[in-house]
Lab assay of single mutants.
Amino acid sequence: EFTQISGYVNAFGSQRGSVLTVKVENDEGWTLVEEDFDRADYGSDPEFVAEVSSYLKRNGGIKDLTKVL
């Protein structure tokens, strides 16, 4: 089950073990991109978060400006 990723309007994530599946949706709710990120592939949590965040930004993730990150 996908849940909204904090700080984004149209990005959602689903966690299974160490694998986080993220997706970005358009205004109609269609999935634009979907990608798996395995936490085990990264040396640290900040590196993992930075990679996921960068992916979302590159692929149309819209920041939720009503929330302070």
Rank of each mutant, 00 (worst) to 15 (best):
E51G: 07
A11I: 03
T31A: 07
L65Q: 09
S6I: 11
Y8I: 05
V52H: 01
D41T: 07
V22M: 00
L56Q: 00
T31K: 06
P46N: 14
S53W: 11
V24S: 01
P46Y: 15
V68H: 11
N26S: 10
V52K: 02
V22D: 00
F48T: 01
S44Q: 01
V52Q: 01
V22T: 00
G43D: 11
V33L: 06
G61T: 06
L69D: 14
V49P: 00
Q4E: 07
E35R: 15
K57G: 10
D36S: 15
D36W: 08
E34W: 11
R58D: 11
A11V: 13
G7P: 07
G61M: 06
K23I: 10
S18K: 04
T21D: 00
P46S: 15
S53Y: 14
W30N: 11
S14D: 02
E25N: 11
V22G: 00
A50H: 09
L20D: 00
R58P: 02
V49Q: 13
V49F: 15
W30D: 14
W30E: 14
L69E: 14
R16W: 07
K23G: 01
D36P: 05
R16C: 13
S53T: 14
G43V: 08
V68E: 14
N10G: 02
L20I: 07
F48P: 00
W30M: 14
E35P: 01
N59T: 06
T21V: 08
V19F: 02
E35T: 12
V24Q: 00
Y42M: 01
G7S: 04
L32Y: 07
P46V: 15
V52T: 02
V33D: 05
Q4Y: 08
F37S: 01
L56K: 01
I62G: 01
E34Q: 15
E25C: 15
S6L: 12
V68L: 11
D64S: 10
E1I: 12
G13T: 07
S6N: 13
G43F: 08
I5N: 04
V33W: 14
V24P: 01
K23W: 13
Q15G: 05
Q4H: 08
L69S: 14
G29Y: 02
E47P: 01
L69A: 14
N59F: 10
D41V: 07
E35M: 14
D27N: 11
S53K: 13
A50L: 09
F12N: 01
R16G: 02
W30S: 10
A50C: 13
Q15S: 09
G61C: 15
V9S: 08
N26M: 06
E25V: 15
W30V: 14
N59E: 05
F12R: 04
G7N: 05
D45T: 09
D45M: 09
V24I: 14
K63S: 08
K23H: 07
G7H: 05
T31Y: 06
E28L: 13
K67W: 10
S6Q: 13
P46Q: 15
T31D: 03
Y55G: 04
D41H: 10
F2G: 05
D27F: 09
E51Q: 10
L20G: 00
L20M: 05
F48S: 00
D64V: 12
V68M: 14
V33N: 09
V52E: 03
F2A: 04
V9G: 04
E34T: 13
E51W: 07
T3C: 15
N26W: 05
L20K: 01
G7V: 04
G13R: 06
S14F: 12
Q4G: 06
T3E: 08
V68K: 11
V19K: 06
V19E: 01
L20V: 06
D38V: 02
T3P: 06
G43R: 10
G43N: 12
V49L: 14
S18V: 03
S54P: 00
G7I: 06
F37V: 00
E34L: 10
L65E: 10
K67E: 12
I62V: 09
F48K: 02
N10H: 07
A40I: 06
G61H: 02
S14P: 02
Y55L: 04
E1G: 13
G13K: 10
V33F: 12
E34N: 05
T3D: 06
Y55R: 04
D38E: 02
V33C: 14
I62L: 10
Q15M: 14
A50M: 09
E51D: 12
F2E: 04
L32H: 06
Y42Q: 00
V33A: 14
D38G: 02
W30F: 13
V9F: 07
N59V: 09
E47Q: 07
G7A: 03
E28F: 11
E35F: 13
K57S: 14
V19P: 00
V68C: 15
R39I: 04
W30T: 14
F48V: 01
Q4V: 11
D41P: 01
E25I: 15
N10C: 13
T31H: 03
L65G: 10
T66G: 09
G7E: 04
T66C: 15
N59A: 07
D41Q: 09
N59Q: 05
N10L: 03
L32R: 05
K67S: 12
S6H: 12
Q4D: 04
E28Q: 11
R58C: 13
Y55V: 02
D38A: 02
T31R: 06
L65S: 10
S6D: 12
S54Q: 11
A40L: 11
D41S: 09
G43H: 09
V52F: 02
P46W: 15
D27R: 10
L56G: 00
Q15T: 12
G7R: 04
S54E: 15
I62H: 05
E1K: 12
T3A: 08
F12Q: 04
S18G: 07
Y8F: 11
D45Q: 06
Q4K: 14
D41K: 11
V19C: 07
G17V: 04
N59C: 12
R58A: 12
D27H: 10
D45I: 08
E1S: 12
Y42P: 00
G60F: 08
V33K: 07
R39D: 01
I62K: 09
S6T: 11
F48A: 00
S44V: 02
G60C: 08
S53V: 15
V24R: 00
A11Y: 02
Q15P: 04
L69R: 12
E51N: 08
D64W: 08
T3M: 09
S54G: 11
D27E: 14
E25G: 05
T31V: 12
T3G: 06
S54Y: 09
S14Q: 11
N26E: 01
G13P: 01
K63P: 12
R39E: 02
G29F: 04
T31P: 07
T21H: 11
D38K: 03
V19Y: 03
Y55T: 02
R39K: 04
Y8P: 04
A40R: 12
Y42D: 00
G29C: 05
R58S: 10
V33G: 08
K57E: 15
L56C: 07
T31L: 09
G17F: 04
E25T: 15
E25W: 10
E51H: 12
G60R: 02
Q15H: 08
F2C: 09
I5L: 10
E47R: 03
G60Y: 07
E47T: 02
Q4M: 09
A50G: 05
S53N: 14
T3N: 08
F37L: 03
S54K: 13
K57W: 08
F37N: 00
K23C: 09
V33E: 05
N59M: 11
D45N: 07
S54A: 14
E28A: 10
I62C: 08
D45F: 13
V52Y: 05
R16H: 09
S44A: 03
S14N: 08
S44H: 01
D38L: 02
Y55I: 03
G29V: 03
F12C: 10
A50W: 08
G7D: 04
E47F: 03
S44N: 06
F2I: 05
D64G: 08
F12K: 06
G29T: 02
L65P: 13
G43T: 09
Q4F: 08
Y8S: 06
G60N: 03
L56S: 00
V49Y: 15
Q15N: 08
D64M: 09
D45C: 15
R39S: 02
T31C: 10
P46A: 15
K57I: 10
G61A: 15
D64I: 09
F2H: 06
E34V: 13
Y42C: 04
S53Q: 14
G17C: 06
E51T: 11
K63H: 08
V19W: 03
L32C: 08
S53G: 09
Y8L: 04
G43E: 10
Q4R: 15
A40N: 13
A50E: 09
S54W: 09
R58N: 13
W30C: 15
E1N: 11
T31N: 03
S18Y: 02
G61E: 01
S54R: 12
F37H: 00
D41C: 12
R39W: 07
W30R: 14
F37A: 00
T21C: 07
L69F: 08
I5A: 03
D38R: 03
V49N: 13
S54L: 09
V19S: 01
G17H: 02
S53M: 15
D36Y: 10
G29N: 04
K63D: 06
T66A: 09
D36E: 12
G43Y: 07
E35C: 14
V68A: 11
R39F: 03
G43A: 13
T3S: 10
E1W: 09
K67F: 13
E34A: 09
F12I: 03
V9D: 03
K67R: 09
I5S: 04
S18C: 13
V49R: 13
F2W: 15
F2L: 05
T66D: 11
F48H: 00
G13Y: 13
S6V: 12
Y8A: 05
E47A: 08
G17K: 03
T21G: 01
P46F: 15
G60I: 02
D41L: 09
G29M: 03
Y55Q: 04
